[in-house]
Amino acid sequence: MSDLYVIQPYRRTEGRLEADLPLSCGSEDEAAKRGKAMAHRVAGVAFFRIDTSASGDQWTEIELLSTVGDVPEDDAA
């Protein structure tokens, strides 16, 4: 298994939070740096660690690492 780190930015459109395109990162540190750098341009950011199968084609576990700003409730838990 290997870890994949993903930044999920959210934008506010007509008062609603909408997911923007997620960004994959090579490490937790890279995800934190990139996410914090973009945080002032978006409504919020969620940071995830995803365990994948050895081939990378299946997700086995998703862990929310942290959030910054406004994110939907299901990503803030």
Results as ranks from 00 to 15, higher is better:
Val42Thr: 04
Thr52Asp: 03
Ala19Asp: 11
Glu63Met: 10
Leu65Gln: 01
Leu4His: 04
Asp20Ile: 12
Ile50Glu: 01
Glu30Lys: 11
Arg16Glu: 14
Ser66Asp: 13
Val71Pro: 03
Ile62Ser: 10
Val6Leu: 08
Leu21Tyr: 12
Val71His: 02
Val71Ala: 00
Met38Ala: 08
Gly26Glu: 07
Glu61Phe: 00
Leu21Arg: 15
Tyr10Thr: 05
Thr13Asp: 11
Met38Gly: 04
Glu14Trp: 09
Tyr10Leu: 07
Val68Leu: 07
Ser24Ala: 15
Tyr10Gln: 03
Glu18His: 04
Asp75Val: 11
Arg34Cys: 05
Tyr10Asp: 06
Gln8Leu: 14
Val71Cys: 03
Asp75Leu: 10
Glu30Asp: 10
Ala39His: 05
Asp70Tyr: 05
Asp70Glu: 11
Ala76Cys: 11
Arg49Glu: 02
Lys33Leu: 15
Val45Asp: 00
Ser55Glu: 12
Lys33Met: 14
Gly69Trp: 00
Ala19Phe: 09
Met1Gly: 12
Arg49Thr: 04
Ser24Asn: 15
Met38Lys: 06
Gln8Asn: 14
Val68Asn: 04
Asp75Lys: 06
Asp75Thr: 09
Pro9His: 01
Glu73Trp: 09
Ala32His: 10
Ala31His: 02
Pro72Asn: 11
Val42Gly: 00
Leu17Glu: 05
Pro22Gly: 07
Thr52Trp: 02
Thr60Asn: 03
Arg49Ile: 03
Leu4Asp: 05
Asp75Cys: 14
Thr13Glu: 14
Val71Asn: 01
Trp59Cys: 00
Gln8Ala: 14
Leu17Asn: 07
Ala54Phe: 00
Pro72Ala: 11
Thr60Gln: 00
Gly26Ile: 09
Ser55Trp: 07
Glu73Gly: 13
Thr60Glu: 03
Asp57His: 08
Arg41Glu: 14
Phe47Glu: 02
Ile62Trp: 06
Gly44Trp: 02
Met38Trp: 04
Glu18Pro: 02
Ala19Cys: 12
Gly26His: 07
Val42Asp: 01
Pro9Ala: 02
Pro9Ile: 04
Thr67Asp: 10
Glu18Val: 03
Thr67Gly: 15
Leu65Asn: 00
Asp29Val: 12
Arg11Thr: 13
Asp75Ala: 15
Lys36Ala: 12
Arg12His: 06
Asp74Asn: 12
Ile62Tyr: 08
Cys25Asp: 04
Gln58Leu: 01
Phe48Leu: 08
Arg49His: 03
Ala77Pro: 09
Ser53Thr: 06
Leu4Tyr: 05
Trp59Asn: 00
Gly44Ala: 08
Arg41Ser: 12
Val71Met: 03
Ala43Cys: 12
Thr67Val: 15
Ser66Ile: 09
Ile62Phe: 08
Gly44Tyr: 00
Ser2Glu: 12
Val45Leu: 02
Val45Thr: 00
Asp29Arg: 10
Glu18Gly: 01
Arg12Ala: 08
Ala43Ser: 14
Ala54Met: 02
Glu14Leu: 09
Asp57Ile: 06
His40Ala: 13
Gly69His: 05
Trp59Thr: 01
Phe47Tyr: 10
Val68Ser: 04
